[in-house]
């Protein structure tokens, strides 16, 4: 696998300018406590490509995914999503960008106090901000029908009337995927979508996400910890370490040395108390 160099950065960034789905150049984020979570990230993702983000905890994967739609405000850099300059976008334009990007979160993030159907209908709020879409009982019949179709696709139509907190972790993540379907997005950002699930439920959720991504020809950026999942559900691996891009290439090219470099913790030499 190729170690990332400044040459590969600029080549890919130019590819994005020529019509890629996601383009990131020099992206940085520093938390208020001074932690440099992202440091000069350059990334380009083509339309329909499935990219797996790898890296140990606190390597910057979640921050990168949140920064792409400015759920976290980057401190430097440029982002282009589906042809829109995200950094320069005003509030209305930013909402329009977010509408085109479905996000699946590690902590699932459903609204527990409302029904499963209401949660799925919330996916349509970006394109139809009418108060009728706030709750399932107020929604128009065609909106409810579309949400039921999304639930049917994730195999949860019989659970539509249940409260979201009455479902298992795997079912809740499938509802979150139905919400992304309802959003009619072109890009899916998945932040460790199976981290909170047992291996079997995790595999089911990844199968479902992959099926939807391939059927809808969506662009996927998915952060994962499990290498075997990365091999099954991605075209390309991008690895982060300490907020910097470490590796970028095809999954089959990932070597033992690459993994060792990725997951080796930098330990200060004995006696070094810095």
């Amino acid at each position: 696998m190729n170690r990332v160099t400044s040459a590969t950065h600029s080549t890919r960034a130019l590819d994005t300018a020529a019509g890629g789905m996601i383009g990131v150049r020099g992206l940085a984020h520093r938390y208020p406590d001074g932690t440099q979570a992202l440091d000069g990230i350059d990334l380009a993702v083509a339309t329909g490509e499935a990219v797996v983000l790898l890296g140990h905890n606190a390597s910057g994967k979640s921050t990168l995914l949140k920064a792409l739609t400015r759920l976290i405000e980057p401190t430097a850099g440029a982002i282009t999503l589906d042809g829109t300059d995200v950094i320069a976008a005003g509030p209305r334009e930013l909402r329009d960008v977010r509408r085109r990007v479905g996000t699946v979160f590690q902590s699932i993030n459903l609204v527990d106090q409302v029904s499963v159907l209401s949660n799925v209908i919330h996916g349509s709020l970006g394109r139809q901000s009418s108060p009728r879409n706030w709750f399932a009982w107020m929604a128009a019949t065609d909106t409810r029908d579309e949400a039921m179709e999304c639930l049917e696709r994730v195999g949860l139509a019989p659970f539509a009337a249940r409260r979201a907190d009455q479902l298992s972790g795997g079912q809740r993540q499938r509802v979150a995927i139905a919400r992304v379907l309802m959003q009619r997005s072109r890009i899916v950002l998945a932040d460790e979508p199976v981290a909170a699930l047992d291996p079997r439920a995790g595999r089911e959720v990844m199968d479902l996400l992959w099926r939807i991504v391939t059927e809808e020809k969506l662009t996927l950026v998915c952060s994962l910890h499990q290498l075997e999942l990365a091999e099954s559900y991605g075209d390309r691996v991008v690895a982060l370490k300490n907020g910097r891009l470490l590796l970028d290439g095809r999954i089959g090219d990932l070597s033992r040395d690459d993994l060792a470099a990725l997951y080796t913790v930098d330990v200060a030499p004995a006696g070094d108390t810095r």
């Binding site: 329009d96 977010r98 919330h122 709020l125 901000s129 706030w134």
Partner: peptide, 28 residues
Amino acid sequence: RGPIDALRSTGATRLSVMACAVIPTAFP
């Protein structure tokens, strides 16, 4: 912040985020 971020990420307006995530989550 989870449900609030989830609703923001769909492109929902500030009012919708309050009505659909903030108020229901704090309702009990």
